[in-house]
Simulated assay, not measured.
Amino acid sequence: MEAIPGTPLPHGILGACSTVTDVTDPHDLLGVEWLALGCNPVRDTDWCPPGNPPPAVAPKEFDRPETEAAAPLTVYTGAECSAPGWTYEEAVEHALANLALGEQAGVEAAFMRTFLAPNADDLTPAEGPVSVAQGVAALEGCLGERYGGAGTLHIPTGAAALLGCCNIAHEDPATGALRTLTGNCVVIGAGYSALNIGPDGLPADPGTAWLYATGPLVIRRGPVDVIPDRNASVNIRTNDRRVLAERTYVVGTTCAVCAINVTVCP
């Protein structure tokens, strides 16, 4: 029998909320740096203050742009079976199919573990977890204050159904992306749900979930590597064949990283 095929979740990190670019130059996958855009405030000034004589106008302020960076992360899946029952081509096909289905969740989990959680400011009040609607409101406030442009909300799949309770997100018919009333894009990630850790690196308590907010996402995606070659794929001691499929990503975002703990109990 043929395996039952699957489809990656449509609103994950590799979906319409992200700008995903396939790159072949390995230098693009070693990590990147850039000068942040949009993180410095735009201030107002008095053109002609009232008074006679007019008061002195405060000097205008200048901000140095911050240097931001994105590090590489690699996701993989391995396939193993008895060599007499599995050809090399069958093992490669199986590994590639697994990677195609699951790599999005792998990228989400890695991004949460290596970037979101370590860099986020925790907005959870002292009283404890808030509702999903309150959590989204707090995150969007954080984005508005620190970035100002359209950003990204990162929602675990285990909390996604609650977005509909208050009409928090709607699908944009033009792009297929989920957006809030404010205009922020919504990533719903199985990897976020599987890991579900907070800024302290610890898993969320039962009945709660961690939501995050960042600026827009720009993702560089490398080619799929299949390792090893045909002859090296068989362990002659056990007569098992092993094939690995992996791919490297560089996930970049900007300015704000905020987090809040929400309750997923009705």
Rank of each mutant, 00 (worst) to 15 (best):
L195K: 04
L217W: 01
R220N: 06
I188V: 06
V226W: 10
Y192L: 10
N184S: 08
P203C: 13
G144M: 02
P156D: 07
G198T: 08
G201S: 14
V132T: 04
D229N: 08
C142E: 11
D229M: 01
Y249V: 07
L202Y: 04
G141E: 09
R220K: 14
T180F: 03
P199L: 15
E171I: 01
C165A: 14
C142N: 12
G222N: 09
A169L: 10
T238E: 14
R247L: 10
E145S: 13
L162E: 01
V187K: 00
P203T: 14
L143F: 10
G158W: 06
S233G: 04
V226G: 06
P206W: 07
A245H: 13
A245R: 08
Y147C: 05
A160N: 06
P228F: 02
R146P: 02
R221A: 08
G222E: 15
V130T: 05
Y249A: 03
A161Y: 14
R220G: 07
A209H: 05
Y249L: 03
L163T: 10
I227D: 14
A133V: 10
V186T: 00
G151W: 03
C166N: 11
R221F: 03
P206R: 15
Y249C: 04
G158Q: 15
G201A: 13
G144K: 02
A133F: 08
G215H: 08
A232C: 07
A209D: 04
L153H: 05
E246A: 11
I155V: 11
V218G: 08
P216L: 02
A150W: 10
N184Q: 14
D200I: 08
A174G: 07
G135F: 02
V224A: 09
A137V: 12
L244I: 11
A177P: 09
P129Q: 15
T214C: 06
L217Y: 02
G183L: 06
I236S: 09
P216T: 02
R241T: 03
T157M: 09
V224S: 13
R220Q: 12
V187F: 00
G144V: 03
A177N: 13
P223L: 06
R179S: 00
G183V: 01
P206D: 08
R179T: 01
V250M: 12
P216D: 04
A194I: 04
D200C: 10
R179K: 15
P156C: 12
A159H: 02
A213K: 00
C185Q: 06
A169K: 07
D172E: 14
R221E: 11
T152A: 02
N235Y: 05
I219Q: 10
D200W: 13
L163H: 10
A209Q: 12
G149Y: 02
R237V: 15
R247P: 05
R221T: 04
V224N: 13
A204T: 11
T238P: 12
N184T: 05
W210P: 01
A150G: 13
R242W: 06
A138C: 06
I188A: 01
H154V: 01
I168S: 01
R179G: 00
E171D: 08
V243N: 11
A133M: 07
P228S: 09
P216M: 07
V218T: 15
A133G: 09
C185G: 04
G144F: 04
V251R: 01
N196Q: 11
A209V: 03
G151S: 12
T208Q: 14
D205W: 09
